[in-house]
């Protein structure tokens, strides 16, 4: 089923929102405005934009340390997102989580995660809950190729298949596990693991958003009709280092030089133009996105820091006895 131009433009808009937000974060980090670590997903925006286009607010997703795109694509509030990453009291998590832990449970965003592969069992549990609640909701877990060697991946693939859980395993394979190439991490490949567990597997060019959206949409529609797991492996590109400040001297210059040609936003822009979207329309999207980010940044910079006296708040739901 071909997507309408409006829907494809929305995917472009989401990718641009993620890209420009992360570029702004990159600058704020360089200016010393963001405490802690920052892992950017520049070059990978097509995956969350594409997958989320098939999701409803009641579907759940969980993410990883490189999770800004997954979070924004699930529809969380941009102001709360920026404020959280700047460690402000007005952040989605009141400044207690930061970049690696942005969550918005009301939007079905169960959290980014600082532990590699930890989102897998949590999302498997969320999928089990969806199955028991029988409302046709599904769960999505985003993980990188760096999670493929973790034990819980194998536990979860097994259980998801045994129990026919409505979970979409989305692997963003950017070829790098931190500072090591994937071939040094895994003796097999995800398609073979899919085959071994009898789980539907689909591979796409993760930098072509229409391809991601089409494949995710088809898999998710099937999962809603009859609960079952599926794997979507998205071949994508990590443009920045593992974290901001990583000089990437372990990557060769040819690989880095080729990244621009695979830029998912440039690719989507080209195809949209060919499909008839005008330069004015594209410029309007860009201006809208810039305005939103400008407003969110201003609000976040101006927002107060958390009160030191609130350290004990929310450790438990009820006040201590």
């Amino acid at each position: 089923m071909a997507m309408k131009l409006k829907e494809r433009a929305d995917l472009y808009r989401m990718m641009l929102l993620i890209r420009r937000s992360e570029e702004r974060l990159q600058k704020l980090f360089a200016d010393g405005m963001i405490p802690g670590f920052l892992h950017l997903s520049i070059g990978q925006e097509a995956v969350p934009a594409g997958v989320s286009s098939a999701l409803t607010e009641d579907d759940t997703v969980s993410s990883n340390h490189r999770g800004h795109g997954h979070t924004l694509a699930k529809g969380v509030d941009l102001n709360g997102f920026f404020a959280e990453i700047l460690g402000k009291a007005t952040g989605l998590c009141k400044g207690r989580g930061g970049s690696m832990h942005v969550a918005d449970l009301a939007k079905g965003m169960l959290g980014a995660n600082g532990i590699v592969a930890a989102g897998l069992p949590i999302t498997t549990g969320s999928a089990l809950a969806h199955k028991m609640q029988a409302k046709g909701n599904i769960a999505v877990v985003y993980f990188g190729d760096g999670a493929l060697a973790e034990g819980v991946l194998h536990e979860c693939l097994n259980i998801a298949k045994l129990w026919s859980l409505p979970i979409l395993f989305v692997c963003e394979n950017n070829g790098w596990s931190e500072f090591s190439p994937t071939e040094r991490q895994l003796a097999t490949s995800l398609d073979k693991l899919g085959k071994a567990f009898g789980i539907t597997y689909k591979e796409v060019d993760g930098n072509i958003v229409d391809e991601v959206a089409g494949a995710a949409g088809k898999l998710i529609t099937g999962m809603r009709k009859a609960a079952s797991p599926a794997i979507l492996e998205c071949r994508t590109t990590r443009v920045r280092g593992h974290f901001e400040g990583d000089r990437q001297d372990y990557r060769d210059s040819d690989e880095l030089a080729g990244l621009d040609a695979r830029d998912p936003i440039r690719l989507a822009g080209e195809t949209l133009r060919e499909a008839g979207l005008t330069d004015e329309a594209l410029a309007e999207i860009a201006a809208d996105v810039e305005a939103q980010i400008e407003a969110a940044t201003e609000a976040a910079v101006a927002a107060p820091l958390p009160e030191a006296g609130d350290i004990l708040a929310d450790v438990y739901t009820r006040a201590e006895v």
């Binding site: 169960l110 069992p121 809950a129 129990w163």
Partner: peptide, 23 residues
């Protein structure tokens, strides 16, 4: 009542995820 495979990390994580999804 779910008879789980021998996979303690997944069992515990499934409980966390289900609890975050209103169970």
């Amino acid at each position: 009542v779910y008879d789980a495979p021998i996979a303690e990390a997944a069992i515990t994580g499934i409980a966390v995820g289900a609890a975050l999804t209103n169970m």
